[in-house]
Computed example of a mutant assay.
Amino acid sequence: MSAPLPLPPLVDHHCHGVARHDLAPDAFAAYLSESDAPPAPGTTFFDTQLGFAVRRWCPPLLDLEPHCPPEDYLRRRRELGAAEVNRRLLGSTGIADYVVDTGLTDGLLAPHELAAAGAGAACHEIVRLEWLAERIADRSGSRAAFLDALADAVEKAAGTAVGFKSVAAYRFGLDLPPEPPREAEVRAAADRWLGTRAPGGRLTDPVLLRHLLWSAVHTGRPIQLHTGFGDPDLSLHRCDPLLLTDFVRAVRPTGCTLVLLHGYPYHRGAAYLANVFPHVYADVGLNLSHVGASAEAVLSETLELTPFGKLLFSTDAHGLPERYVVGVELFRQALTRLLTGWVREDAWSSGDAERVAELIGAGNARRVYGLAVRTPVHDHRGFP
């Protein structure tokens, strides 16, 4: 390819808010890992692929040299303050649209604040189903009131949000019966849960998790499903996206779009489901950030089977604006190396490579979530 691939204004189709206040070193480092335990003795969570990627791509945006020591980076971060760090880092990414999961909120920028910090990008909401049910349970005095309010809330959310998300993988696992639960099952499960739940308690009942999923299916809005790795709350072997196969089949007649998030180390299974089922899409977000320098290999494996019109870019950034920078840069680097290599080998044409880059980076997400094409609000960096 004679010229670099242009990077489109990106749509980050799955992400979260970032911290609005300055972070202590330990709090910052905790966002570099999915673990809830301290790092190995004599190390920090900077000693990970994600930590090294932060030190490679973020220091120049704060007037430091790449790969500077963590202490220097954190010192400079404190000098600038959270607002300026957020402005610099988010404004550098070329993200034009944030599709924000609002199920994580504590101390984080709201979607409109995130978009404003990102040089005037647009923001769109994804409603987390389990969070919605838990908030309603906190204020419901009876099972009937809970189920009625939940039905109303799902319907209302479908009118304002661009989609829903389920973390059933965390709360139970993906090996749920695929069919909708019967009304009597739902009533009995709600009585059970509400009767034993303390205020703020999490929803883990498999019947109610299925009820939530099917309530969202019937709205017709896209549903994001966590699959693959995450923090220690989940059991990884029960988060394989292939466990969703019967559910995927059951949903197919409704036309509801299912977006399989992450998937690692089962990302090839997610690619298979996206390949054979018309309503299933796959995501590359969290995987690339956490595998860091191996991002090209993981993206290549995902592209083995995923149709190019069914793979979506995201960062799954949470807490740190650095995770937006790293998510974008690792995606840019990995996609560039893969596509330029395939063009050089004459396996692909340069025009096809540019078209696929646009589809994965933005076009597929705009189609899935019904987002308008926007004129870039700030300069974005092209592929190197």
Rank of each mutant, 00 (worst) to 15 (best):
V127C: 12
W342H: 11
E322K: 02
A188H: 03
R55F: 04
A297K: 08
L273M: 02
P180W: 14
A151Y: 02
T196S: 13
Y281L: 12
R56V: 00
G285W: 09
A157K: 05
Q49M: 02
L243G: 04
N275Y: 14
T336G: 12
V11I: 15
R187Y: 12
L32C: 13
Y73Q: 03
E79W: 04
R337N: 08
R143G: 15
L212C: 01
L243V: 06
R252C: 12
A161N: 02
A157N: 05
G94K: 08
A122T: 13
S350W: 05
S35E: 15
R210A: 07
V154M: 08
G141W: 02
I136Q: 00
G351Y: 06
F45M: 07
R344A: 14
P59A: 04
A271T: 05
L150F: 07
P4R: 06
A27G: 10
V167D: 07
R337P: 00
L273S: 04
T93M: 08
Y324L: 09
F46I: 09
L150E: 06
D379G: 15
R78F: 05
L311G: 07
S2M: 13
P69I: 09
A293T: 09
F172T: 04
P180D: 14
A110E: 14
H267C: 11
S166P: 00
T219L: 13
Y31V: 14
L174S: 10
R78W: 04
P232A: 11
E301F: 01
P25E: 07
V377K: 14
A297C: 01
F308D: 10
Y324R: 09
R374N: 02
L23N: 03
S142Q: 09
V251T: 12
Y281A: 06
V167G: 01
Q224M: 11
L80P: 02
G292P: 02
L234R: 11
D246C: 07
V11Q: 04
G17Y: 06
D175Q: 07
R374I: 06
I223M: 11
D148A: 10
A149E: 06
A82Y: 01
D316G: 04
F277R: 05
V186G: 00
L286P: 00
E65T: 08
A19G: 03
P111C: 02
L359E: 07
L108A: 07
E329W: 01
E125H: 05
P180K: 14
E185Q: 15
E65K: 08
L225E: 10
G173P: 04
L194T: 05
R56A: 09
G228V: 06
G94S: 14
A282K: 01
H14S: 06
L225S: 09
G230A: 08
